[in-house]
């Protein structure tokens, strides 16, 4: 009974909670995105649905839910159906190891406190990178199976971009691992509880990581796969209704994941801001605040910077971020020694 409880019931409950929280966070994020960008551009944003437009995300979700499901005649039906699934499943699975806090007893329901992560794997960080590397096929196969020129071009561009920025992104995370000597997400946070947050000694790694994270999630100013003027809507031009919604959901879930990684690896995860520990704010609130901070940066970037040119984008990835990340590894390795 105890075995079933620890290994099946509790994880299943945690998975359902995380699943719901992620979906809610995406809903809130769509609203926040429109509002924040509207305020930055001195507009009001959505105001019609509910007070201050608060019900707008629900209206949007219902709209997408009841939209016609169009499969173009020239599309490869099986792959066309498979692509959104291949985008959303890895995006959700990455949340398996995200530690939202230290430990919880679910308000005293459990006698033994359990980890706030669904499962704290030994290979935590590598697990996230491995799972999210499969997400690229949603884009690639979605673009191919539509059998239409804009999705095909958009998918190819997008894939080349994601692949190029995956290299400096993974290299930038080596520095913090050198300092923490573990891949476990929990272990990385605990390593920071003894010393300072890794954002200070790993500042260059942090900058490279953030820049590459924006590129990996195809967000502005690296949102070339969806450059409207050239590619209509990129790889998901032909998609409609719920299938489109899954791509959209995957993009936002990926944004939350990369923000969560940044929080765990560089900003001390659920730890309180040094000097503010006396406030007794719960760990999960700290975690949420830090993730929200990174998500705000995503929106801020989108409202501030124009889109890159594709050749510039590829060059800065290969010729600037990779050398910086490599030098960062060398210097960190020397200092840790």
């Amino acid at each position: 009974m105890d075995f079933t409880m620890i290994n099946i019931v509790i994880p299943a409950v945690k998975i359902l909670i995380v699943f719901t929280v992620v979906l809610l966070a995406v809903l809130i994020m769509t609203y926040a995105e429109r509002k924040v960008i509207a305020f930055m551009q001195v507009r009001l944003g959505p105001m019609r649905v509910g007070p201050w437009g608060l019900l707008q995300p629900i209206a949007d979700a219902l709209k997408l839910f009841s939209k016609e499901d169009i499969i173009p005649t020239m599309a490869d039906k099986l792959v066309y159906f498979l692509a959104p699934t291949l985008a959303i499943v890895p995006a959700l699975l990455t949340f398996l190891v995200v530690p939202f806090g230290d430990k919880t007893t679910f308000f005293g329901l459990l006698k033994q406190p359990t980890s706030m992560a669904i499962s704290d794997l030994n290979i935590g960080l590598l697990y996230i990178l491995a799972i999210s590397s499969v997400g690229i096929y949603g884009i690639l196969l979605g673009g191919w199976s539509s059998n239409s020129k804009y999705p095909l071009l958009g998918a190819l561009r997008s894939a080349a971009q994601i692949v190029s920025y995956e290299v400096p992104l993974t290299l930038a995370l080596v520095g913090p691992i050198l300092m923490a000597n573990t891949l476990s997400m929990k272990g990385i946070v605990e390593a920071q509880s003894k010393g300072m947050w890794f954002v200070i000694p790993q500042f260059f790694g942090f900058l490279v990581y953030m820049a590459c994270a924006v590129a990996e999630t195809n967000r502005a100013p690296y949102d070339l796969p969806e450059a409207e003027q050239e590619l209509v809507a990129g790889f998901h031009t032909e998609y409609s209704g719920m299938k489109f919604a899954f791509f959209y959901l995957a993009e936002y879930a990926n944004m939350i994941v990369v923000s969560a990684i940044a929080t765990v690896v560089f900003l001390g995860g659920w730890l309180p801001v040094p000097g503010l520990a006396f406030l007794h704010i719960p760990a999960i609130i700290w975690f949420a605040l830090k993730v929200a901070f990174f998500l705000f940066i995503f929106l801020w970037l989108r409202a501030t910077y124009p889109r890159y040119r594709y050749d510039q984008l590829m060059q800065i990835g290969w010729k600037f971020f990779i050398p910086v990340a490599l030098i960062n590894i060398f210097v960190t390795a020397l200092l840790v020694l």
């Binding site: 290979i123 590598l126 697990y127 990178l129 491995a130 799972i131 590397s133 499969v134 690229i136 096929y137 690639l140 196969l141 191919w144 190819l156 894939a159 692949v163």
Partner: peptide, 17 residues
Amino acid sequence: AVQLLVYAGGIIVLFVF
């Protein structure tokens, strides 16, 4: 994890390209 990262996430991309 390496199998996913290199084979599923790398080599198959090369195939699709």
